[in-house]
Each structure stands twice: as structure tokens, then as C-alpha cells.
Amino acid sequence: MKMYLILLFGIHGALAVTHSLRYFNAASSGILNVPEFVEMGMVNDQVISHYDSITKIKVPKQSWMKEYFNKQYWDSTTENLRYAEEVSKVNIQTAQMRFNQTGGMHFNQDMYGCVWDDETGFTDGFHHIGYDGIDLLAFDLKTETWIAAVPQAFNSKLKWESNPSNIEREKLYLTQECIEWLKKYLDYGKTTLQRTVPPSVSLLQKTPSSPVTCHATGFYPSGVMVFWQKDGQDHHEDVKYGEILHNDDGTFQKRTHLTVTPEEWKNNNYQCVVQVAGIKEHFIKVLTESEIQTNWGANDPNTTGSALIIGVVVALLAIVAVVVGVFIWKKNKNKKGFHPTSTSDTDSDNSGKGVQKT
């Protein structure tokens, strides 16, 4: 019997729907056959635009972007990015000099944008800069200053803070212009960006002694909680949480692993609970022998699922080396405690505005 339940009212309450607009700039040197500069625009983790140093043209990645924005928009943002590309080359040379490096492969990463909660009205803005997988600088909106994470970044901090107009422009974009553009994009692309799609939940196990994996996939938006309960109480012991990953159809997946003996889960009530932002229902899969899919028999979950793309950047840009640099830096940034800080309709959305000479 299928033990798949949908509860109308969850214990944890509904997840808030937070929307985001982010730009990722990745510059590289010493790497053959990949663009030296790439920019990717993302709304709610969906790629909306792309530019690279090979094509030198900013292009839409969503049909609604093609429909709502004219040639003037694409020309102006392309011009911004061509300038940002040239600045990024200088920045890598400057960083190499400050870190006493000669030659080799190097990455410069720039991530900036904003988030907005459409229920509470809460907003955040952020701007982080990294180099070769480490933090360099982060803008603090509360103090209106740049935080230098390493001594090599201190000169840039002093340079940027010495010009009040630069600080004011940074603050204006993160607190106002970025939010306005985010709302504009959400309105134009609401059929895809503001949709909700419930998850498909499965329990997977490689061998009888392996951890039991709760796999939620096909959900949208990306905000999700996947957790285990034991006898109706949240259970965190011997639980390992995976990252949110992208599917090839624009939805997301996430896995949570529970290490428990068959004797233990057969004698207790274990269940995996999944909650997706914007969907009030909780999706629950009860841990029973009949619910577990294995690959030590004919039922192999690795061959029955949809093809999954581990990194959206890899899939869309096909520049593995640059992307690895961006995401390694993002993970390191999160570990080191750099977080977003509290935070006019023109023909340009400020693509490339994050790149400044260091």
C-alpha cells in the first residue's frame, strides 16, 4: 500500500516565497578554449541572460525576455558588459600582482543582486567579490563600507571608499534599482517565475546497509525543506543534507540521507517531510520496506529518473572551468560568513555594473 500523504497544514508552516535577482561575473586567465569573461543573469535561480567574451553579445535565455525588451535594451547592456570585460582583465592582473603570482590559471568572481519577499516586503542587497576561490571584498549596506576579507584587498577598499559617489551609486542600485528590476522581471515572466510545482518524493537505497535517501525532485521554486521525522518529531541525528540542484526542465531536486538500521526503522515510525515555498501542503513519504527503491535488484533508481544537470551554469554555458571557479568561491563564501546585508526604470538593468577596477 502506498504510504504517500499530503497534509493540508504542516507542522513547520509554509515557507516564505523570496524572489531574487543575481548577476554572476566570472573572469579567467590561463585557460584554453573557454571564454575569458562570462556574465549570467538569474531571477529565482533561472538564467535569464548570458554574455561571454567570445560572442560579445548579451542574449536572452527566456522567451519573455525576447518579447518584452527591445534592441536598445540589448545594445546598452551589451556595451556595459564589453566595458566590464576589459576591466576584469585588468583586475586579474592586479590580483596576480598583489598575491605575488606569475602565470597559471586564475579566476575572478563578482556576484551582486538583491532579494525581495513579496509577502512581508523585506529586501536584501549584496555584492561579493572573490578571487581563486577565496573572498576578497563584500559591500556592507549598513555601514556603507567595503569589507576586505584579506590584506591584498585593502587597497581596493580604500580606493572605492575614497569616492563618495561610488558608495552612493552602489547603495542606490542594491536598495532601489535592483528591486525595481526584480519586480519588473517577475511581472514579465510570471508564468514561469511565479509558478509553483509540487515535488515527486522517493525513498532510495543502494544496498540494505546503505543510508536511506529521501529524494525530492521536479519542484519549483527552489525554496525547499527536506527533513526526517521519527515518531512525529523532527529527527536530525545521523542525517546528512544535500544541496539543491537543477533539473534539465527548470525545476529542482534535493536529497536528504538518513543512516538507520532496518531494525530501527521497522520498529519506529520514520518519515521524510518535504515542503516547497509557495505550497502550503507538506509532502510526506513514510519509511516502509515497500516504499524503498533499490539498485540491488531490478529496480534501479539511477536509471529511472530524469536526466539531471548538476550545475545550471555548466549546462547553459558549457564552460566548466570558469563555472567551477564561481561555485567553489560561492561555497567558501557561505562558510566564511559573508551574507547579504539589509537593504528607475531605464533602458539598462546595470548588467556588468558590479565590475570595478581594483
Rank of each mutant, 00 (worst) to 15 (best):
F9W: 10
G10T: 04
I11N: 08
A14W: 01
A14L: 06
L15P: 00
T18N: 08
H19E: 08
H19P: 00
S20L: 05
S29V: 12
I31W: 00
N33K: 06
P35D: 00
E39L: 05
N44K: 07
H50F: 07
H50R: 07
I57W: 06
Q62W: 05
F69L: 07
W74E: 02
R82C: 03
S88W: 00
F99P: 00
G103M: 02
M105P: 01
Y112W: 04
Y112F: 12
V115Q: 10
V115W: 03
W116S: 01
H128Q: 12
Y131D: 03
L137A: 04
F139E: 14
F139L: 14
D140A: 15
D140S: 07
D140W: 14
T145Y: 05
A148C: 05
F154S: 08
K157R: 06
E161R: 15
N163W: 12
N163M: 12
E168D: 10
E170K: 09
K171M: 05
L174K: 01
Q176A: 12
Q176V: 09
C178F: 01
C178T: 02
D187H: 11
Y188V: 03
Q194G: 05
V197M: 14
S200W: 02
P208I: 07
A216S: 09
A216M: 12
T217K: 14
T217N: 10
F219Y: 15
M225A: 15
M225H: 15
K230R: 10
D231K: 07
D231L: 07
G242S: 05
H246F: 09
N247L: 11
D248L: 14
D249W: 01
T251Y: 06
F252Q: 02
Q253N: 13
T259H: 08
T259Y: 14
E264R: 06
K266Q: 06
N268L: 03
Q271N: 11
V273W: 11
V276D: 00
V276W: 00
V276Y: 01
A277W: 06
H282I: 03
K285P: 00
L287W: 02
E291M: 07
N295C: 12
G297K: 09
T303Q: 06
G305H: 04
A307E: 15
L308I: 13
V312Y: 11
A318R: 09
A318N: 08
V320K: 14
V320W: 06
V322T: 12
V322H: 02
I328V: 11
I328N: 15
K333E: 13
H339N: 15
D345R: 14
D347L: 09
N350G: 11
K353M: 09
Q356C: 10
